[in-house]
Design a protein around this nucleic acid. Structure first.
Lengths: 114, 114
DNA sequence: CAAATATATATCGGCCATCTATATATGTCA
DNA sequence: TGACATATATAGATGGCCGATATATATTTG
């Protein structure tokens, strides 16, 4: 098996897709949710997130829709498309292989977190 | 805890230091050993490795010495310095935190490979 | 013996992901 | 009403990694 060489630096995309698996979310919410779930280890920057969202939407991996509430500021929600779900599964497999390989190189012990 | 933002893309340094933990090695050997230990998932490129080795040596994390055999091609072996060992430990902790956080974001389950 | 291939190290230019900085606009709270 | 949080957006800078290339020697193969 060959790992996509951009996996490591491209893990942000994996995380974004992972967030959308459970619920539709808007950008700002993703930043907060990611911090929360990772216990402040990931502090995704807006300047990183939004360009990725636009790219993923262009690629058909996610779809957006606006909320039409009268009170709050309009938010742009994103949801996974069928293709996006497939991409997420692929990237999850890559991540498992990658993290497992790192652990093997470092200490011999294998990844067992699933 | 704050993760070095270059961790992900900087995992190559972690892997190199990890290789040197068990034995002194020369560059070309690291490329082979890394492929072997990771079951061909990591194919470290010479153009990536050697500049990193030079940088690490400049920073005092590793030291080099040449072999003076008459038969074989001279090899430049590297060993971890005290500081290098410390750096490795730090980076290993960061890696655990990072991979654990990814797993938490993705599925909830935690890293348990150690 | 000569050619091809594997071993071994080295550097440069460029790509691409991410961050910083900045801009814009609205809702809420003191 | 001024400050701050919410919310999205983009341009420019930075930095790690790779592809290409160069050099030199040992080994294997025809």
């Amino acid at each position: 098996m060959k790992i996509d060489k951009s996996l490591v630096s491209g893990s942000t995309t994996l995380l974004i897709l992972g967030l959308l698996k459970s619920n539709d979310m808007y950008g700002y919410q993703m930043i907060e949710e990611l911090e929360k779930r990772s216990q402040n280890i990931f502090t995704l920057k807006a300047g990183t997130l939004y360009p990725i969202l636009h790219t993923l939407e262009q690629q058909g991996m996610i779809e957006s829709y606006d909320t039409e509430t009268e009170s709050a500021r309009p938010r742009k929600y994103y949801r996974l498309t069928k293709e996006g779900k497939k991409l997420l599964e692929e990237k999850q497999i890559e991540w498992k292989a990658y993290s497992s390989a790192v652990n093997q190189v470092l200490g011999g012990l294998n990844y067992a977190g699933y």
